[in-house]
Each structure stands twice: as C-alpha cells, then as structure tokens.
Nucleic acid binder design. Structure first.
Length: 870
DNA sequence: TTTCTTACTTAGAAATGAGGAT
DNA sequence: ATCCTCATTTCTAAGTAAGAAA
C-alpha cells in the first residue's frame, strides 16, 4: 500500500506532464506557427490509438510517451515534434507518460527497465520512502492508488528518489538550516497576509518541519493524519552521509561539478552566500508576516528619458510636406518607427494612433489640425527614412568610440543602478522611466496605437527610508509628485501608466534579497504542495459528482489547473484583449469528443493560443460536459466560480496555496523526474542537449511559446545543404576506401567539391566584402582532387560520421525549439535546485545551465546537493 | 457581496552583445 | 580575425492574488 501511494503521487505528477506536453505541442502553433504544427500534427494524428499501442510494443519508449495521458491529440502533436527527438528524451517522457497515463496504458508499457535503473541509485532511503508513502497513505490511499496504479512501477522509482532527495541529507549538513528553511518557508510566504502569519506562529511551536498547514486543515474532515509528515522530517535530519559529496558547500571550492568553469562566480557566490555554515542565510530570513520589509532604504530615484529633439522632418499629407509642431512630430515619429511592423496593418492601431495624433495637433497646431483629416493621406516615409538614417549612423560608429560612449553612459547612470536596503547594497532592476511611445498591446488589444505619454517627476511617487535623503529631482524646475516612506512594500518608485491607468513600479533587481527570498519561498511552497497533492486530487475527483454545482465547477476547474497547468483566469475588462484562463473559459473554447477527449482552443496570457486535445478522466469529462450543457457558446463554463473563491478553497487545503502554485509545482516536479531518467549522454554537450530536451517538455507543459524566428526556414535550409554536402563527402570517402580495399592499394584519389574562398582584400569596403563573400558562397563548387592514404581516409570517415550526427542533432533541436521558449520556465517555474543537483550529479558546470544573471538570481540555490529532490 | 486598487510575478519581443564558425 | 548567430538582457505588457472600498 504505502508504496503504491507513493507511486500514485509520482504518477500523478507525471500525468500532468504529459498532459502539459500535449497542450504545449499544439499550442506551439499559436497563429501561424500553430498552423504549421497543426499540419504536422495532422499527419501524426492520422496515427490511431492502435498504432500507438503497436508502437509501444516495439519501441516502448517513444510511443509510451504518447500514450499516456492525454492524449490522442498529444500523440499527434508529439509525433510531429518528437519524431526527431533523440531516444533519450523519448525514453524519459515515456516513462513519465506512462505513469501519468491511465492505468491501463501504463501497465502495458514496459516501465520496468526504467524503474530498474533508477532503483539502484536510490538505495538508501527506502525507509524514508516508506515514511513518505505512509504519510500519503494515511490519507485514503486506496482509491487513488488504484487509478494510478498503472504508474506504480515508475513511480516507485521516482519515489525512491524523492526520499533520497529528501532534502536533505546534503542540505542538512551544510545548512543545518536547510530543513528549517523549509519549515520557515510558509512563514516567508510573501503573499502571506497577516492571517497567515498568525497561523504560522501557532504552528511554530510545533515541531520542526512540517506541516504547519495541517492545523488549518483540520477544519476539513479528512485531515487528521498529519503526524506522518513529521515522521518524514525526522528522517531527513539524519546525517547525511551523502551529503558530503557534492555539496561542497561553501562556494569556493565547491562545485566539484564545475571544475573548468569560471572562478569569478565563486567569488560572487561567496559574497552572496554570506555566512559560512550558518544557521541562517539571508535568503532564508522570514518575510513572515512582517509588514515591515525594511527599515532603511536609500536610492537615487529614477532616470528620465531624454526630451524629444525636433528635427523638422515633414509629414507628407496628401502629397504636401508639413513640418509639424514638435509635439506632433514626436508622435508622428513614433508611428514612423512602427512602419515595418504588423501593427500598422491593424485598423484599431491606426485608428487609435490617428485619434491621439489629431488630438496633439489640435492642442498645438490648429492649422495643421484642420488640414489633416484623413489618415490614409498621411505619409510618414520621410520620417521613417530619417529614423533609418539615424540608426545607420549609430551603427557606423567605430568600435572603440562606441565602447567609450557606452562607458560614459554607464558612468552617467551609475548612481541610479544601486540602492541600499538596511545597509546592504542592492542592484535596482528598472530605474529608467518608460519613454513615451505608442502603446503596443499584445493580441487584439483595444488600446493599441494610443500614445503613451511622457512621465514627469510630478507623476512619480518616491518611496524612501524616512531617515534617508530624498533623491534630487533630475529635471530642473520640476519636483517629485510625492515622497512616501512605506516600509510594507518593496518598490522604490511608482507611477501610473497613462494608457491603462495601471501601476508601474521601480523594483530591485532579481538578485536582491527582496526578490530572492520570495522566489525561494515560492519553490518551497510548491514543494509543500507535494505533500498535499494526493489528498487534493482525491477531493476534487469526489467533487466532480457533487450535487452542489459550485463544488462541481470548482472541482473540474481545479482538475484542469492541476493537470493542464492552466492559469487561474481572472476576469478582464473591456479595455483589454479578450484572453482567458481556467475560470474564464467559455463554452466556445471547448469541443467534446466522446468518450473522453476535450479539445481546448483559446487565447491565454499575452494572447498566446492554447490548443490542445486531451483525454481526460471520465469524471472530469462528464463534469465538464455537463457544465457546458445548455449554455451559449459565449457563456462561461464556470459561471459560478470566481478566482477568489477558488483560491479561498485552496487556502483551506493548504496554507498559502493558490492556483498558481500548481503551475510551479507541476513544472518543477516534471523537470525533476525527467532529469532522473538515465540517458546515454556522454559528454557535457550531450548532457546539455538532454537537459534542454527536458526543459522543453516543461515549456510545452506551460505553453511557453515564441514566434517563429524570422530566418528559421532559411537557416534550416542552409543546414540541410551543408548536411547533404557532408553526406556526399562521406560517400566519396567510402568509395575511396572500397577502391583501396579492392585494389589493395594504400592510397587513392578522392574528389572533393569545395566552395571557392572569397577574395577579400584589405582595401575593400564593407559592402564590397559582403558582396564578395556572397559571390563566393553562391559560386559553383570547385572540384579538388587529392591523394589520400588509407589511414587518413578511415580517420576521415569516422570524423565525418561524427560530424553528420552532430549536424542531425543540431537540426533536430533547432526544429524542435523553433516555437518553444525555454527561458520562461527556467526563469520562473523551475526550482533551480533541481538543475543544480543535476549538474552536480552529472558533472556539468553550473554556468552551462545558468547564465550569469540566472546564476546570481539563484545564488540561494547553488549549494543544493546532488541529492536534492523537488 | 462585488469591484477596485495595489503589489508583485510572469511573459514574449526587441535590443544588444558575446562567442562560434570559417 | 571577421562576420554572423544566437543567447542574454532589456523592456514593458499582462497576468495573479490579496486587501480595501463600495
């Protein structure tokens, strides 16, 4: 039983992934991209379930992935993208998938192999595992276990790992506090309101770790069994034999992993890490309920963009040149600068722009205002040319001078880049006030094209320590709108956006204490969810059948949030693009395909399309279908449910739990589990390809898309040509080898076709050079014949094979990632300790995975041991 | 209640710059 | 060593979610 419970949990996690994947893949297509994908999908889609099964039988891994969960659609999608994927990746996903997938499928699949692999690693912790299992178990395990059972094998393996990670062993050592941290986390919870705080306090007295949440839960019926968790914790604290290894804690020596890597970071790391083995690192400090986030705060205010300098380049109206009033010229220039974008093709954009433009004319230049009546007669080309010329001018600046300018600018701006919080110097994130511009909303934003006005000091509220000097207002003759001393907030300055009336803030940078503490707390909260997830799932499954419609709506919605990683979906106003999240889904966004497939198609945040067809659990399917019945296509599916009631309910399940925690949880858990799959990566490069593949799975889960890079097709074409030429060379080498073998010769003539080298001369201008390069690249290849010895031919063959493999892998990766954005999940959803642990375990230098800024942002996570388990 | 406001996180595109291929 | 690519950084829009106000 216990084991199975564990498995259940794990599996569920896996499922999510799959679901997510499905979702992602499809979505990747938003707009045009989407269509492309669709095409692929369609092909794949042709594949039937049966096909898949068969595949499973043969190629266990790849197909397995598809199978599981969700879906059909997924399969389709995947096929498209995943075909190319390396087996390793496939394997991982498969396992995952299976777990996720419904029991039947899972069982069928041959998970065993995976399991085996993992188990060895896990070894030690069985005991821990058991504990955890028991914990989960105490909840009503049975039912869930059954459903999920399919995944069990896989899960098992996973679970074992979990135990290991338990956080801890390694953590314990160094930071004895590690454990505490966790505990603390809840307290920290940034969002945690006063109420939370109170709760926390109550809990504190309790033991260490755990579960402060439980007390709260009490009200709910089932919770009794809290204790178990405690048990788990105990286990953790132990010793940590393991710990030793990697954790080299202190930064210095540290990363055994990153031997070759940069040393600079170590220094930074040390700095950031602060205290030695300390009890408490700065990033562990509570954000507890303290309303006071700081005592002293000093900074230099904000930097305003330069004023507009009129250039008297005319607007051409109806064929005639009109030199505009400077204010109008500035606005017209904004439009001219957008001429190459798709915005100018949108009526709303043009209408909004022209309306604001005329208003500016009316205020400043009555004559022109009367004259300029028709937008279609406006010609901004002279202005566009002016902007282009200016850009070219800037580009032409010699490197040395450019560098100098840069440095001078940096010097000028320097004082704005830092702030001091309670004696610690911190970087400021965005000290530049946004310059006036045309508002560029995403998707079909009703306000796109309107003029975002210039912000003046009077529009700014400065927040600063009561004893700290008020920054000088940088624009003579002006003064700050307001100066306040609000210790409950972390912003340095504030203004109101002139388009949306929304608030804009100046914050500290991502590596500041304010930001990192809450970031760490976010991940700890997500980890905490892992301990409650089983119960939560059980609860919402029960809710699908509830008599109470509100309960049904909430339960079905939560299922979608959990399995598909949907956002909660707050209500939106009239003046915003029509996008939705879970709670705001409308009937028109879903299509039901009996018996249990739901197609989703809607625009989410940033008007990114979410398009996915998902095989959902029976209860959820029936529940959803029922909710859609008798409603118009424009009606909300979850009409009785609000995001705040949903969150209120979640809070009753776990302290601090909100809908967005599920995204973090699923994303991180998915990466953690996927990275545990063993692949055959040999060198660091292959490891990184593997890592990126798993990162991609998460990005797909979260539907993180990017637009198709402009030159993608062109670049793929080039790679393809290169690839073909390399193959051609390989064939020639093989032919020569054969010839030598047949003739028992030790050398042979080989023919190679090479591109002529460009003849660049030192007196050529840039233009001439590029023309020459182009000529050379397009010139017919020249035939070169050379005599090669047998040895070198064989050597060359081996090398060419390797090169071809690498090319294939690169092309595949490029194609796979063409519309997937990895950065968003890495930055916001993936617990960095997962990556740190993986790097240490696989001896991959951390800086290969984290850019410098990410490294700094995640400094708090760098001492995680390789045993860390999310 | 419900709506509005505030504070903070998450998001993709554009701008920039560092490194890789040749 | 040069040029171009591509990754990183910057920018600011668009979310979430809590608390205040209506």
């Amino acid at each position: 039983m216990e084991d199975s419970d564990d498995d259940g949990i794990l599996l569920s996690a896996l499922k999510k992934k799959k679901g997510g994947n499905d979702g992602v893949e499809k979505p990747s297509g938003g707009g045009e991209v989407a269509e492309n994908n669709v095409g692929k999908d369609a092909m794949v889609g042709a594949e039937t379930v049966v096909d898949r099964v068969e595949r499973n039988g043969k190629r266990v891994f790849e197909d397995a992935v598809d199978d599981d969960v969700p879906l059909l659609s997924l399969k389709k999608i995947r096929t498209g993208s995943s075909n190319a994927e390396p087996k390793k990746a496939a394997v991982v996903s498969n396992s995952v998938v299976k777990g996720t997938a419904q029991a039947k499928d899972v069982d069928d699949l041959p998970l065993s192999s995976l399991t085996k692999r993992k188990e060895p690693v896990l070894v030690k912790k069985k005991s821990l595992t058991l504990k955890r299992a028991s914990v989960d178990g105490d909840l009503p395990p049975s039912s869930l276990a059954k459903k999920k059972s399919p995944g069990s094998p896989f899960k098992r393996a996973v679970s074992v790992n979990n135990d290991d990670d338990l956080p801890l062993s390694s953590l314990k050592k160094k930071r004895s506090s590690g454990l505490e941290q966790r505990k603390i986390v809840p307290l920290k919870n940034p969002s945690a309101p006063k109420k939370v705080i109170k709760i926390v306090k109550k809990l504190k007295p309790q033991s260490p770790l755990d579960r402060k949440d439980e007390p709260k839960i009490v009200s709910r019926k089932s919770n009794t069994p809290v204790k178990k968790k405690i048990v788990v914790r105990k286990a953790m604290p132990k010793p940590a034999g393991k710990a030793n290894n990697h954790s080299l804690s202190k930064g210095k020596v540290s990363n055994s992993t990153a031997p070759s890597s940069v040393d600079i970071r170590k220094e930074e790391y040390v700095f950031v890490g602060g205290e030695e083995d300390g009890e408490r690192r700065w990033w562990q400090e509570n954000m507890d309920g303290n309303e006071q986030r700081w005592q002293n705060l000093s900074h230099h205010g904000v930097l305003f963009p330069p004023l507009y300098e009129p250039v008297r380049v005319p607007l051409i109206y109806n064929g005639e040149e009109i030199v505009l009033h400077p204010a109008a010229e500035e606005v017209a220039m904004f439009y001219a600068g957008k001429l190459t974008t798709d915005y100018v093709k949108k009526d709303v954009f043009n209408k909004n722009f022209f309306s604001d433009f005329k208003q500016t004319l009316r205020k400043n230049d009555r004559e022109t205002f009367k004259r300029v009546k028709d937008f279609r007669k406006c010609n901004f080309s002279r202005m566009q040319e002016h902007l282009d010329a200016k850009k070219a001018e800037k580009k032409a600046i010699p490197a040395a001078e450019r560098k100098k300018i840069r440095e001078e600018e940096a010097e000028r701006v320097k004082k704005y880049t830092v702030a001091t919080v309670d004696g610690k110097e911190e970087k400021v994130g965005n000290f530049r006030i946004e310059p006036p511009a045309l508002f560029l909303g995403r998707g079909e934003h009703p306000l796109m094209g309107k003029v975002k006005k210039r912000i003046w000091p009077e529009d700014i509220t400065i927040n600063i320590g009561p004893k700290d000097p008020v920054p000088e207002c940088p624009i003579p003759g002006h003064k700050w709108g307001k100066v306040i001393h609000n210790k409950a907030v972390t912003w340095l300055a504030f203004w109101r956006d002139t388009i949306t009336n929304g608030s804009k803030y100046v914050w500290l940078a991502a590596d500041s204490k304010f930001k990192t503490v809450s970031d760490a707390a976010k991940f700890e909260k997500a980890r905490k969810l892992h301990k409650h997830i089983e119960k939560i799932r059980k609860d919402y499954r029960r809710g699908w059948k509830s008599e109470d419609e509100l309960v049904r709506q909430r339960s079905v919605a939560l299922y979608l949030i959990d399995r598909l990683a949907l956002r909660v979906g707050n209500e939106k106003g009239e003046d915003e693009a029509d996008t939705v999240g879970c709670c705001s889904l409308r009937v028109e966004h879903l299509t039901f395909n009996d018996p249990d497939v739901v197609e989703f198609n809607f625009l989410g945040k940033d008007s990114i399309r979410y398009e996915n067809s998902v095989k959902v659990e029976r209860g959820a399917y029936l529940g959803l279908k029922k909710l859609a019945r008798k409603k118009k296509s424009s009606d909300d599916i979850f009409n009785r449910l609000t995001t705040s009631s949903l969150n209120e309910y979640l809070r009753s399940l776990m302290e601090g739990l909100t809908a967005k925690v599920f995204r973090t949880y699923n994303a991180s858990l998915t990466l953690d589990r996927l990275l545990r799959q063993e692949g055959q990566q040999q060198n660091v490069n292959e490891q990184l390809v593997f890592y990126n593949q798993q990162n991609k799975e998460v990005a797909i889960l979260c539907n993180h898309q990017r637009s198709l890079p402009k030159k993608h097709d062109e670049q793929m074409g080039k790679l393809s040509v290169k690839h073909d030429e390399t193959i051609e060379w390989l064939r020639e080498l093989e032919r020569a080898a054969k010839e030598m073998k047949a003739g028992r010769k030790d050398s042979a003539d080989v023919t190679q076709w090479v591109h002529p080298k460009p003849e660049l001369k030192s007196d050529m201008t840039e233009e001439q050079r590029s023309a020459e390069r182009k000529r050379a690249a397009e010139a017919p290849r020249e035939k070169v014949v050379k005599r090669m010895k047998a040895d070198s031919v064989h050597l060359a063959i081996a090398r060419v094979h390797a090169r071809i493999d690498k090319m294939k892998s690169e092309m595949q990766t490029k194609e796979d990632l063409k519309t997937v954005a990895l950065s968003t999940s890495k930055l916001n959803y993936l617990d960095p300790r997962i990556s740190v642990a993986w790097c240490k375990k696989n001896e991959v230098p951390l800086e290969k995975v984290f850019s410098k800024s990410l490294y700094n942002k995640f400094a708090w996570a760098m001492e995680a041991s390789q045993e860390f388990c999310f």
